[in-house]
C-alpha cells in the first residue's frame, strides 16, 4: 500500500542529513580544507564563482605516469587555466605507500613535469579521498561556479584493456569536453564515467 507523501519525504530528509559526505552529480560538492604544498590551508569553498577541477593523483602509478609522460594531463591543466578554472591535484596516498610525498617533493614534481595545478593538496589520511569516494588515480571531478558537482569519473575514454598501447592525445578527453559543454550552458553529456587507473593508496 502506498504511503503518504510525507512519510516518503521524511526519511529522504534525514538521509540527506546523515550522509552529508556522499557525492552525487548535481548536488553540492562537500567542502573540505587541506594543506597545499606551500603549507597554506586551502578550502574548496574559497573558489566559489569559479569552475573547479579535482584530480586524484599518485606519481608512482603507471596510469598517472603515462598521462604526464605524454603531456595529456598538462594539456588538460592548461586548458582549464585558459578558461580561468581552478585545478586541485589531491594526493591521498598514506605515508609509506606509493605516491606519498612531502610538500617539497610535491613542488619538485610539479616543476619537473611542467604541470600547472592551482594547488597540490596533501590528504595523507585519506579523509577527503574517502569523502569523494575517489577510487583510482587519476580520478577526476568537475564542480561548477555554484559548487555543484557536475562530473565524476575518468579523464578520458582511453581506459579499458590495452590502455598502455593507446595514444592518449587521440582519446576523447572528458574534462575538456565537459568544461566546453558547461561553458556553453549545456549539461555534461556523460556526467558519470568509470574511473580507471591504480587504486588510491589509502592507509589500511
Amino acid at each position: 500500500m502506498k504511503k503518504n507523501l510525507f512519510i516518503h519525504l521524511l526519511p529522504i530528509l534525514f538521509f540527506a542529513e546523515v550522509c552529508y559526505s556522499y557525492v552525487e552529480i548535481d548536488t553540492k560538492a562537500p567542502d573540505f580544507t587541506l594543506s597545499n604544498s606551500s603549507g597554506e590551508e586551502i578550502s574548496l569553498s574559497e573558489f566559489s564563482g569559479k569552475k573547479i577541477i579535482i584530480e586524484w593523483t599518485n606519481h608512482g602509478c603507471p596510469f598517472v605516469a603515462k598521462h604526464y609522460k605524454t603531456g595529456n594531463m598538462q594539456s588538460t591543466q592548461q586548458f582549464s587555466e585558459e578558461i580561468n578554472a581552478v585545478w586541485l591535484s589531491i594526493i591521498s596516498s598514506a605515508p609509506g605507500t606509493q605516491g606519498y610525498v612531502t610538500p617539497l617533493e610535491a613542488n619538485e614534481l610539479t616543476l619537473t613535469r611542467s604541470a600547472s595545478p592551482s594547488h597540490v593538496l596533501l590528504d595523507s589520511d585519506g579523509t577527503v579521498g574517502k569523502m569523494y569516494e575517489a577510487k583510482t588515480t587519476p580520478h577526476m571531478y568537475i564542480i561548477d561556479e555554484e559548487g555543484i558537482l557536475k562530473y565524476q569519473g575518468a579523464i578520458d575514454d582511453a581506459g579499458g584493456r590495452g590502455f598502455m598501447f593507446k595514444d592518449l592525445l587521440k582519446a576523447k578527453n572528458y574534462i575538456k569536453n565537459g568544461l566546453l559543454e558547461l561553458n556553453k550552458g549545456d549539461e555534461i553529456t556523460s556526467p558519470i564515467t568509470k574511473p580507471y587507473g591504480c587504486s588510491v593508496k589509502y592507509a589500511s
Partner: peptide, 14 residues
C-alpha cells in the same frame, strides 16, 4: 579480470 573492479585493468592480447 575483464572487469577489474574499482582499480586496475585486465590483460589485453594482440
Amino acid at each position: 579480470w575483464e572487469n577489474p573492479g574499482d582499480a586496475g585493468e585486465g590483460a589485453s592480447v594482440d
